[in-house]
Computed example of a mutant assay.
Amino acid sequence: MAKADHLDEKIVQVNQRLKAAQLGLQIERRHTKLNLRGTLPPRPASAKLRPHQQRLCLGLPATPTGLKQAEQEVKIIAGQLLQHSFDWHNYLTFSGGKRLSQMNLAEQLQAFEQHFLSELPRQSNPAATKTTWNSAYAPYVRKLAAIAAEHPSLTLVEAIYKTVQATELNSRSRQLCCTTLSALAAFLMLPLPHDLKVLAGEYGSRNVRSRQLPSDEEIVSHWKNIPNPAWRFVYGVMATYGLRNHEVFFCNFSSLCQPKTARGDTMIEVLPATKTGSHQVWAFYPEWIEEFELRTIQLPDLETDLTKTTLQRIGQRVTAQFRRYGIPFSPYNLRHAWAVRTIHFGLPDTVAAKMMGHSVAVHTRTYHQWITARDQQQAVDLALSRRGVPEQWAGNETIR
């Protein structure tokens, strides 16, 4: 107890020197550790915009030696604040109370995952964030760890470049790898000699493989061949509303239970727990609501508690059922067919993109390229019929 009292007296003396130097920071003892207290910039992901009073864990022991180190640390931080170069990432601690500089690679990668899932401003939809991590980021973090372990003589920067080069150029995997490792390098404050965007190559509409989407007749035909009513409902909703695999299980279907004549009775609401959050969708075609018996709402008994499962696993179950029932196309092809259908109907891209839960740029880049010769002929016939062009000019006849 006497030792603690003696140290507290020394802390008072140090703080008097810091105050006289007008550094605006003080040292305090919290149990067996020393902290800094003062006006600091907002932490990452903080809702506050201006500097305010905060504590910073120095990670130093509450001992005379620790106090000497703390005084020097305070002077360094005060200098950073004056030069506007202070960065919280230099001082944040993660599991085990370690700073990034004190961690090995495995611990740094774990801290990056922790940061991605909890620190970034995505908390309005944590389930979607977890799905994004598992499907888009985690594979390349694991790949980096494996390459670093296989080649221990490489520096982390060299291992990052080797991981990128291990993916196919101009591919989706190369793009995701560069995105993931760029974010990791920024998190670790690790300078890269060359921006990974340079190595990402080109991946976009020119690189997406063309798809042979099912016709409307094929969609109806395969629905009839599904023996389970609950899975018929899933199939029918995806076809009618263009939903993602998992979204079917996170929808408000109450409007379908209203009288058929009610205004807006074809609209359903996708709930916030999904990949892109809450949005409303309308049926294309509305008559499929009756044909697919969607007013009788019945879903398969799947685990949808996102504390026990993920959106990705739910989507995988849907894909597995499609295979089980011998459906010759993927669930996503129902979504793609819905998107192309809205183009034929003349629905503005801004509206269709909002219903699908993505940007207009993604919508036009992804879906307009899939309009086949068959689709173009249908669009021509529809356009000519609206203008009252003689019937013999439409179809496969040459327009003179």
Results as ranks from 00 to 15, higher is better:
205 S>R: 13
207 N>S: 14
208 V>D: 07
209 R>Y: 06
209 R>P: 09
213 L>Q: 05
214 P>D: 02
216 D>N: 06
216 D>K: 05
216 D>M: 10
218 E>S: 08
221 S>D: 09
222 H>R: 13
224 K>A: 15
226 I>C: 00
228 N>S: 15
228 N>P: 01
229 P>R: 04
230 A>L: 08
230 A>E: 15
234 V>Q: 00
235 Y>T: 02
242 G>L: 03
243 L>P: 00
243 L>S: 01
245 N>R: 11
246 H>P: 04
246 H>I: 01
251 C>I: 09
252 N>W: 08
253 F>N: 02
257 C>W: 00
259 P>Y: 03
261 T>Q: 14
261 T>N: 14
262 A>E: 10
263 R>T: 12
264 G>M: 02
265 D>L: 00
267 M>T: 14
270 V>W: 01
271 L>R: 13
276 T>A: 14
283 A>E: 03
283 A>V: 06
287 E>F: 08
288 W>I: 01
288 W>D: 03
290 E>I: 11
291 E>M: 11
293 E>R: 13
294 L>Y: 00
299 L>Q: 13
299 L>Y: 04
301 D>C: 12
303 E>M: 14
306 L>R: 05
308 K>A: 12
308 K>Q: 15
308 K>V: 12
309 T>R: 04
311 L>P: 10
313 R>G: 04
317 R>Q: 15
319 T>I: 01
319 T>A: 15
325 Y>W: 15
328 P>I: 12
330 S>C: 03
330 S>D: 01
332 Y>R: 13
